[in-house]
Each structure stands twice: as structure tokens, then as C-alpha cells.
């Protein structure tokens, strides 16, 4: 089983907007390796054609709701947990730099 590389952890950290120190990269690479090994064991069993892939533990389909309006939050409640708000909108830091 090929292990997960530091480069791959760096890549994942970037996608998740996590800033990791060098020693953390090694630490998480090791942990992710263990997780992937565990999942791979499930894969060995699931490779059997008798077991269909599943994304949900419940054998349900077609759970829907009617297209009827339900009350929304009041804007001030919606914004209550926001670190910053302006003009009744969520205020977020700069998304992109100058270039």
C-alpha cells in the first residue's frame, strides 16, 4: 500500500484552507495513511460483486417535501452568528489579492 505523501497533505491542506507547519505535515501524513489503510480494508470486502455500493445506511429513496414556503430566519437572526456584517449582508475578508 503506497503511503500518502507530504505533497499530497500539502495539497489537501491548501484546498481546505488550513495552514500546516512542516512537522504537522509529517504527523498528518502518518495519520491519513492509517485512515486510508483502514478504508482500504473495507474496500477489499466491498470488492465482492455481491455487495452493491451504498452511500446511506437506510434503505430509503425518494424522500421529498412539498414545494411549500416555510418561515425563514429574520435577517438579524441569520446574521447573529456572523463575525462581521454590513448592509444586512455577511461581511467576509478579501477573497483575492491584487493580481
Amino acid at each position: 500500500m503506497p503511503g500518502i505523501t507530504r505533497e499530497e497533505v500539502t495539497h489537501l491542506a491548501r484546498l481546505s484552507r488550513l495552514e500546516l507547519k512542516d512537522e504537522e505535515l509529517d504527523h498528518f501524513a502518518e495519520q491519513l495513511d492509517a485512515i486510508i489503510d483502514a478504508v482500504a480494508r473495507v474496500g477489499e470486502i466491498a470488492a465482492d460483486d455481491d455487495i452493491p455500493p451504498t452511500s446511506h445506511p437506510l434503505p430509503l429513496t425518494n424522500v421529498t417535501r412539498p414545494d411549500e414556503v416555510r418561515p425563514s430566519l429574520a435577517p438579524q437572526d441569520a446574521l447573529a452568528g456572523a463575525p462581521a456584517a454590513e448592509e444586512q449582508r455577511f461581511k467576509v475578508p478579501q477573497i483575492l489579492g491584487e493580481d
Binding site: A78, F90, K91, V92, I95, L96
Partner: peptide, 11 residues
Amino acid sequence: IHGAEHSLLDY
């Protein structure tokens, strides 16, 4: 978006 200081979101 370029050069913006911050952004406001309406969901």
C-alpha cells in the same frame, strides 16, 4: 473582486 477590500454576501 480584484482589488476589493472585502466582500458582502446575500444568501
